[in-house]
Design a protein around this nucleic acid. Structure first.
Lengths: 208, 208
DNA sequence: GTTTTTACAAGTCACTCGTACGGTATAACG
DNA sequence: CGTTATACCGTACGAGTGACTTGTAAAAAC
């Protein structure tokens, strides 16, 4: 029954099979034959939907980023009406951590792409171009918190936002290596958030 | 002229050739033949010094970690007599960042190993076992700072130490991706240190 | 001075990789 | 109807992989 298949859906199915392989064996351990077998299709069929392996990789990366984006967006909307900036930030940061199977798979695939991006200018550019937007969103939330008197105005900067993003990235790496438990990672994140929103004074612990 | 070669030195030479390959093409892009060619030797000779590829990889990892360790240790000793705990910490953290060619190569190789470790329990255990020691050293410095009245005692905790380590890891990743410039990374690190120590003067530059 | 050990070079092995291609079945289209 | 474009499958190719074997020369050991 040709002519009626949903190309995009087929490509998504294949991409998801790729994630399953890549999250356990790594991206370089994911041959076309492995992916096809994991997806339950023939190699020929996979090739019908992706002209080359790079084509498949690029699609899978964009797709997984889109899913993560949607997932975090949903969580923020689930916070209800007018959540505090701090809660929005924390929800976003926690959503970026590989804490459950879904996000862990995403992070594993992301890590595989990371190493590839380090040596590939095109991939590096693609990995880079989402970050300013994320940073601006964070900075906006920080400014909103400052306006509400929940944060010292001097702390509502791009640098503080990038610090948060960098920290989450480091925490993610150690979660993947099982250096941190999920509980530890959350505790460290909240420790930093507590410092940030607690202001200059030291030993204050804002509760969650 | 057999019998007189320094095995360990030969292995180090080969390991350095491996780094050169891995830092530009990645670990999976480093075949035995590539490494041999980079080292200017034959494949047979390489195999004479490493029984298997995994053997070579394991040696190269231990060697590069040892070099980084020595490099940072030297810098700390170069600080002179009784440096402040804050300066020791900053020197150590800055030394962990990929800011020059040497440390960048080390970080690139480390990133390649990272992705491999995520899928390999043995490598993961090896990557993990150095961290508690590092954390204890950091915690010790924090406590020393607290004793000298340079840090609120409540901040001299294992968690604050792990936060520093996690942050440096995140900053390193973004340095490799060229999201941060070296200047930005140092600024973010000092921003966090400033918060931690209560905003005192930042120690002067460690130039690369 | 013969034997043994060490240090390599070169070639071979079985295998995997991404890609290319030929063949076939099906349904939409003229 | 026949034509044609689509959706596959199966296989084969050439390059490259790590591991292994064989060959050779030279220094050390006896």
């Amino acid at each position: 029954m040709p002519k009626k298949v949903d190309h995009e859906a087929r490509r998504r199915e294949i991409a998801e099979a790729l994630w399953r392989i890549a999250s356990t064996r790594g991206l370089d351990g994911a041959g076309l034959r492995d992916v096809a077998a994991e997806a339950g299709i023939s190699l020929g069929r996979l090739q019908h939907y992706f002209r080359s392996k790079d084509d498949m990789l690029a699609f899978a990366l964009r797709h997984i980023n889109a899913l993560a984006d949607r997932r975090i967006r949903d969580r923020i909307e689930a916070l209800g009406e007018e959540p505090t900036p701090r809660l929005v930030l924390r929800t976003c940061l926690v959503g970026m951590l590989p804490l459950d199977d879904r996000s862990r798979t995403g992070a594993l695939v992301g890590a595989a792409y990371f190493v590839r991006a380090v040596h590939d200018a095109d991939l590096r550019a693609e990995a880079r171009n989402g970050i300013p937007h994320l940073r601006d969103f964070f900075t906006g939330q920080l400014r909103r918190a400052a306006d509400r008197g929940e944060l010292p105005p001097a702390r509502a900067t791009d640098d503080e936002a990038m610090l948060l993003i960098s920290l989450v990235d480091g925490l993610s790496a150690y979660l993947l290596l099982e250096v941190h438990t999920p509980e530890q990672a959350l505790r460290l994140l909240d420790l930093h958030l507590g410092q940030l929103f607690g202001g200059g004074a030291v030993s204050e612990g804002v509760r969650e």
